[in-house]
Simulated assay, not measured.
Amino acid sequence: MWQIYAPEGAYGTADRKAFSEVITDVYADLCGLPRFYVVVVFEERPAGTIWVGGEPADNFVRVVIDHIARQVDTPALRDLTMEMFEATMEPFVKDRGFEWEIHIDETPIEFWRTQGFVPPPAESEHEKRWAADNAASEWQGQDAHVWSDQFA
């Protein structure tokens, strides 16, 4: 999930669509995740509501990312992830003259359900089916213990 806090009017509908599509493409095309795993929320902030260092920052975009389906578990992969996301954001942030900041949180996968289902294990046939269907569905072995067994 990406939460993009931006000045009011920074992104029109076409911009939001294009921005969310390139974000989704990173996860779906490069990581093989189902497209519906990617949620992008644009939070427009009126002038005078974003402050950085005690000063108004009306030209500032803040991106907060919450990863659940995958964890970025090595320093090299973390660096690559940040570089990839900075490049993904560049046309929508840097190239438009905005100041920006980005960070990623990682929620333990055990604290996640989608449409009431425990998501299938990473890169499993069930996850590939979810990606092909672009929808969550019941799958054999979806007990919560699947996750604890897999990551124990």
Rank of each mutant, 00 (worst) to 15 (best):
W130F: 12
F92V: 00
V52D: 05
P108D: 14
W130S: 02
G54C: 02
I104R: 08
P120L: 08
Q115H: 06
H103A: 13
G48V: 09
W100Y: 15
R113H: 11
P34C: 03
A18E: 01
G12M: 08
Y5P: 05
V63L: 15
Y37N: 07
P119C: 08
S20L: 01
K17M: 05
I23G: 01
I109Q: 11
G48T: 09
A152H: 08
D15Q: 09
P108I: 03
T24K: 00
S20W: 00
V22Q: 11
E125C: 04
V41H: 14
K94P: 00
A18P: 00
P119N: 06
R45W: 02
L77H: 14
T88M: 09
E106L: 04
L30C: 10
D25S: 15
G32N: 04
E110I: 09
F98A: 06
N134F: 00
P46D: 09
Y37C: 08
A122T: 11
R16A: 02
K94G: 04
D79S: 11
A132F: 03
A122R: 11
A152T: 08
P108G: 08
D79T: 13
P7H: 09
T107R: 12
G116Y: 02
S124F: 01
P75S: 07
R78S: 09
I109C: 06
A136M: 10
F19C: 04
E43N: 15
I68G: 04
Q71T: 10
W130R: 00
R129Q: 13
E138L: 06
V41L: 15
H67A: 14
T24W: 00
W112L: 05
R70H: 06
V93Q: 02
V61Y: 01
F92I: 01
P46E: 12
T13D: 15
P75V: 00
W100K: 03
D73P: 02
D25G: 13
Q150A: 13
E90Y: 04
D73C: 07
Q115M: 09
P121W: 03
A47K: 15
K17H: 12
P56C: 06
V22E: 07
Q71M: 07
A144S: 10
F42S: 13
L33E: 02
D105K: 11
Q140I: 11
A152W: 03
Q115R: 07
N134M: 02
A87L: 08
H67K: 13
W130D: 01
A144Q: 11
K17S: 12
D105L: 11
I104E: 05
Q3F: 13
E90I: 05
D105E: 12
E110D: 11
I4N: 07
I68F: 06
V52P: 00
I104A: 09
E138P: 05
W130M: 09
V38D: 02
L77S: 12
H145F: 10
P46K: 14
D95A: 14
L30E: 14
H67P: 01
E99W: 03
V41N: 15
K17N: 10
V41T: 14
F151C: 06
G9P: 09
M82K: 05
M1T: 05
E86T: 13
R78A: 10
F36A: 02
G116S: 04
Q140M: 07
V146Q: 13
A76D: 13
D58Y: 03
T81Q: 10
F85T: 04
Q3D: 15
E138S: 12
H103W: 15
A14F: 05
P91A: 03
